[in-house]
Design a protein around this nucleic acid. Structure first.
Lengths: 200, 200, 200, 200
DNA sequence: CATGAATGAGATTTCATTCAT
DNA sequence: TATGAATGAAATCTCATTCAT
């Protein structure tokens, strides 16, 4: 019983996830969502108040899943390097595993304050999770460090979305690269005279 | 006359830049652009084929300006560390200087292949510019390094858009932080036993 | 059992009466009627073919009650003045007693011929009832007189609907006023030279 | 120029007047209004913000015309009886002349407070105009008298709307009847023993 | 008898674009 | 060139009604 009603709710979310993810908010029509979910247009409105709320629900489910999985993986790891590697892996493979659905990823309605608030909060939570790892390692500027690490990963993931022939090995290579660069810096790979280097 | 028509072309671009930048593509109405530019709606179509092309033109002008300024600044600098600092500064201050117009930055129409192609090309050019600097420094994985550095900067810039009280000093601090972290890595700031550290 | 089903029929009518009466036909939703009646939406359709028929039934019950009560009161009175007073009282207090439910009174679907027919018939019956009283008094133009009297009363009642602080005393005052004006005319209250007055 | 733009505004109002008047607010579709006015659907929205405002504009134009004409006719008449006759004539012939367009007259959206406010104000203005006449005649209860007179007229007009064979002579007869009844009362036409009559 | 999830026709409204002036 | 009134396609959302349980 519960699962039956749950099924419809879920199939709407799934359909919306695929469409919003690949075409964006405005380009996705409620009729497409209904068709994809195999239900009538009006039925969507029994489960979601309107298009924006549906988008919000899709976003939340996705973000929560991202964070929850990350926490689980971090819990299973207890040394610092390992945790940084877990973060990199998670970030890259999360998108790699969903590359079909997030070809262009989210294009959200801009003027929805609730959504902006939610996304801000999501980013903060993600940043907090990374900061926590860094603090355990004794970092002095954990917030900027966390942001930097996340930024690196986010850019390194982009090619997943654009290059159709991106492989899991490519993802793993980037994940390792990111962790290494973050910890050791680029200095070793660059010819920087000691005298030139800015104070670390 | 030539300059007069040029003026109109420019004022449309300026108006569109402000509106697209602060409200996004779909939320910006052609009538608003016309009003802001001080011309009639129909006149826009004498200069731009349609809304998407106008958006494209706005994006191009912005991206080209970004790259051109970057090249100029890099040309004036000849040591590696200096160039990395220039990149960081440019990235952060470009957005800092335009924070009024890019509060939410661009929300583009997703299904316009030309735009997607252009954005891809822009990112590539930006990456190439950074790679060139890194290659001069002898980097072994210049592309991943360039992407990582750009990613760091892009994330560190986010707070400019979200925190209204972000100051120029905050921007400068982050720019220095980014360059330092990129070169030296986080190791020095973290308690990582040598044995634990992955090979760089 | 009969009474149980009767109860449900009645509670639907009661709910619909309150909602149609205060919000109008189109503004009242079948789901609201169901909720107010404490039953499921589908159940309404076991008792009434559709929304229009429900509206019709509500209207009929109300109109029939209005006429039935009037007849009873008229039967208990046997002089002409008394009967006219009864009519005035009945008209004003009927609405006064229901002012909660008829704040905006009925807004009916316009294109339902059955309803139009019923309302016409109701007005005719009401007019007939008043005419009968007037005929017993020997009136020469009983129909126009009856319509005029009803019209006076109907307008004098309006303030009940609009002024929330309308009291029962106000209603009684208006009822007396109407009967007096109808019988004696305005002449006594106006400075009309005999010569000016039209022939009665 | 002015008249050209005015023409479109007017033709929308005319079309809406006819449709709202004969079919009611909800039953009238904006597409019908556009078709009747000979323009495109979207054009209506250049002149009126939405359906409710169009309805409001139609109502206002009608009510203002009613009051303005009444004032003009009253200004041309200077004895009391004549003015009362003018009011009766105006009320009946206004509807008689428009019987095509007001077969069912207005059925308004119930929940529009602006419209309710406007209608209330209109009724007050009409009442005031009648009161002014009565006050000049020295009436003691001018408001109740005015309401009563208007009510009589409003009911006497109803048959215009329902009986297709209602003639101008019928209207004139009713107008005279109303004025006579209002001034002289029904007493003369009824067998009411003096003793029975309530105090006037 | 009773339910309420599901339906889908249909209405209002927006806004990019056109074109006669 | 420049205008801006007019267009009409297209999208969201509502809600009376049905029907399997």
């Amino acid at each position: 019983m519960g699962s039956a009603s749950n099924d419809k709710h879920t199939s709407i979310l799934d359909a919306a996830y695929g469409l919003f993810g690949s075409a964006g908010f405005y380009e996705t029509k409620m009729s497409q969502v209904a068709e994809q979910a195999g239900i009538a247009k009006g039925t969507i409105y029994l489960y979601f108040k309107n298009k924006e709320e549906l988008f919000m629900a899709v976003t939340q489910r996705d973000c929560e899943g991202f964070l929850k999985q990350l926490e689980e993986k971090l819990g299973a790891e207890n040394n610092l390097n390992g945790k940084l590697a877990v973060i990199a892996d998670h970030h890259l493979f999360y998108y790699y595993d969903r590359k079909q659905h997030t070809k262009l990823f989210f294009r959200a309605p801009n003027n929805n304050p609730e959504l902006v608030a939610y996304m801000t909060q999501f980013i903060e939570q993600y940043t907090q999770a990374v900061m926590k790892v860094l603090l355990e390692g004794g970092a002095t500027e954990p917030e900027l460090m966390a942001q930097s690490y996340i930024g690196m990963l986010d850019r390194l993931k982009m090619d997943i979305l654009f290059h159709p022939d991106f492989t899991a090995d490519d993802a793993r290579k980037r994940s390792l690269f990111a962790a290494g660069l973050f910890i050791n810096g680029a200095m070793n790979a660059l010819h920087i005279p000691e005298a030139e280097a800015p104070p670390s």
